[in-house]
């Protein structure tokens, strides 16, 4: 634990330095507060609106987490499907890859059309964003499983079930967690976008409304909190990964 704190020290120092630069530059260069507010003003605004921000933070976090859970289930199922059927490998997998050329942002209003202004349209946008990294990384995990182990198991008389449970599944876990870390971070962005398109609460809506009123310090406090949320989601996914894969890597 001490070791990890020590390794985090340089980046914390850098953050402090950047914060000091921000504060100094905005004061010295007299940048208008609606362009870049003073960092201290951002924190003051955060504190003044703390109860409101906590509520909005909770709303956005909930949307991200629900969407992420759906993506975990759907992405894993898609990966298993791709892995278990050579037809799906030839059809679904390239389709999922190609689907990334469709701008997700452009699809998002459709979600609002389908699911309305309640939480489910935001969840749907989150799924649009986070499904891909989970499905593809998990599928790649399955695909890159060590063939040597599979062959060895076949000489031992292993059937499909044994091969999947004892070989493919454990082999795909690192890929799954790579996908989860990407999806966790990106899901906050999805929820924010969902709120911009139509919503009454959440940090995305809060920043948009504040920006309409040129309240720079409120916009920045929302952005900072969204970043914190993204970082927390990422750290949580990393922690899960470290726990599950601890034995095989041995370094964490």
């Amino acid at each position: 634990m001490m070791k990890r704190m020590k390794s985090a020290l340089p980046v914390l120092l850098l953050l402090l330095l950047l914060a000091a630069l921000w504060e100094a530059a905005t004061a010295l260069l007299q940048i208008p507060h609606y362009m870049i507010p003073k960092l201290s003003d951002v924190f003051v605004s955060m504190w003044d609106n703390r109860s409101l921000l906590v509520k909005h933070f909770g709303v956005t976090l909930q949307e991200s987490l629900i969407g992420l859970c759906f993506s975990v289930v759907l992405g894993t199922l898609a990966a298993v499907w791709i892995e278990s059927s050579s037809l799906a490998k030839k059809t679904i997998y390239p389709l999922i890859i190609a689907s990334q050329t469709v701008p997700i942002i452009a699809l998002s209003p459709i979600m609002v059309m389908w699911f309305g202004y309640e939480i489910w349209s935001k969840v749907a946008v989150v799924i649009l964003f986070s499904f891909f990294p989970l499905a593809v990384n998990t599928a790649d995990g399955f695909r890159t499983a060590d063939e040597g182990i599979g062959e060895l198991m076949r000489t031992m008389g292993a059937g499909r079930r044994d091969l999947f449970l004892k070989w493919k599944l454990p082999s795909a876990l690192p890929g799954f967690f790579t996908g989860l870390k990407m999806a966790a971070t990106i899901s906050v962005g999805g929820a924010t976008l969902g709120e911009w398109l139509g919503g009454e609460s959440g940090l995305g809506m809060y920043t948009k409304r504040a920006s309409n009123m040129l309240r720079g310090e409120a916009v920045f406090s929302g952005v900072l909190l969204l970043s914190v949320m993204g970082i927390l989601m990422f750290l949580f996914a990393s922690l899960l990964e470290a726990i599950v894969l601890a034995r095989r890597n041995g370094r964490k």
Partner: peptide, 28 residues
């Protein structure tokens, strides 16, 4: 399952410890 095959690479499962790796054939 009638021959014991030892491949060129050891092909141990990185997620299993020594006992669980060696027990793979029995398990199957």
């Amino acid at each position: 399952g009638r021959v014991g095959y030892m491949p060129q690479r050891d092909c141990l499962m990185p997620w299993r410890n020594v006992v669980d790796n060696a027990a793979l054939g029995l398990e199957i």
